[in-house]
Amino acid sequence: MEKIEIIDSSCIPLPIEDVDTDQIIPARFLKATTKENFGDNLFRDWRYNSDDSPKEDFVLNNPTYSGVVLVAGKNFGCGSSREHAAWALEDFGIKVVVSSFFADIFKGNALNNGILPITVSDAFLDKLFRAIEKDPKARVHVSLPDQTIKILDTSDSETFDIDPYKKMCLLNGYDDIDYLLSKKDQINEFEETRTY
């Protein structure tokens, strides 16, 4: 897993609520047995027509917008538990997703794949969308150590919450399995002593 510390980037705006993981990566693209190349089909049906030609008006096809920060409406990542959604975002190059609300499973999957989900207030999300509307190249500065996100054009900033353990994992590129494997003896003991 890649480490995350400071991100300074322009943004890709997706001002839609309840973006479900079937939109992030439709089920028909879940047939791979490796984690590679899911980015090609990120937002497939919003991004391409049925003849595979790009849909001009979708944000990922608009060269005006670029960067490693995706900004989305509330309840991002709802629906299916497919981690392929996180793999697709990661493969496409997204490092941070900003929204006012994330679905639980997606949030966990993102953190397990080196993507930082930042939950901001509705007001801040609104300011960020407006800043991007005004200047598509508007940049944000994200500091994981400080737990802050700042819109550089307007100097609006907000702090965000993150579980301290998950923060440590992201800063160091660690994952949960390393930790759980270190608990082997306790797990064995639990199995031996449980009454039911």
Binding site: S81, E83, H84, I105, G108, Y165, D176, L180, L181, I187
Partner: peptide
Amino acid sequence: FGIGTSQVEQVLATQCLLLTRP
């Protein structure tokens, strides 16, 4: 409850998950 593939790997490897109580 449903889990992501990284967690499937955690359970296969350790029969446990690291979770925050909802």
